[in-house]
């Protein structure tokens, strides 16, 4: 565990909590893509099946349970409790265009052709693109609430910090996971345009709105 990995995990946790609190406090999930949140729930579910087969550490187990729990809670708030506020008309990204190719790729390119490993690979690939429905929704409506941009910032920052963590682990531990690294790079690149808008607009006190 190095500082980049830890701050990456905490950044991820911050993102998840920010989103949950935003929805809970405002009693509304307006502007949030339920599809992205379902994809993230799928990501955590397929990745953390090893909760049932392996024990790594108390930290590892607790974080996994928190991530899964919060993820399902978010989906529940969007599709059940605050369903009336869900903006389905703008959440029109076709998720099958992500899930099907990602599923195929995880069968073709993985570390080991076993069910658990294929599901882990699927989760890594899916996570890389799971934010696309949310970004698509923002591009469609042309704006995002500031709190939603904080969520996206921490979610993007998490994988960027993991990239530094992997450089660190390569030099100091000889650890190298090509699947995670390539997917992590793709995932981080998808946030770059958003990072730019976040720094140039949101951090200067302006609302994130895109030119019409």
């Amino acid at each position: 565990m190095n500082i980049f990995r830890l701050t990456g995990d905490l950044s991820h946790l911050a993102a998840i909590i920010i989103l949950l609190l935003k929805i809970w406090k405002s009693r509304s999930c307006a502007g949030i893509s339920g599809k992205s949140q379902i994809l993230f729930a799928m990501v955590f579910t397929t990745r953390y099946l090893d909760l049932l087969t392996a024990y790594i550490s108390l930290y590892n187990t607790s974080m996994k349970i928190i991530y899964i729990g919060c993820s399902y809670a978010t989906v529940y708030l969007i599709y059940a409790k605050f369903k009336a506020t869900y903006d389905g008309n703008h959440d029109t990204f076709r998720v099958e265009f992500l899930v099907v190719p990602v599923g195929g790729l995880s069968f073709l390119v993985n570390h080991d052709f076993s069910p658990l490993e294929i599901l882990w690979t699927f989760s890594i690939y899916l996570e890389a693109v799971a934010i696309l429905p949310q970004l698509f929704m923002i591009s469609k409506t042309g704006e995002a609430e500031t709190i939603t941009t904080h969520y996206l910032f921490f979610l993007g920052l998490y994988r960027a910090l993991y990239l530094i963590n992997w450089v660190w682990r390569f030099y100091f531990e000889g650890f190298f996971d090509m699947i995670a690294i390539v997917a992590g790079v793709v995932q981080t690149i998808l946030y770059c345009d958003f990072f730019y808008l976040y720094v140039t607009k949101v951090l200067k006190g302006k609302k994130l709105s895109l030119p019409a």
Binding site: R5, A54, I56, N60, K64
Partner: peptide
């Protein structure tokens, strides 16, 4: 090495 040593990351 290109072999993963389990998935200790989250």
């Amino acid at each position: 090495t290109d072999k993963t040593v389990g998935h200790d990351e989250l």
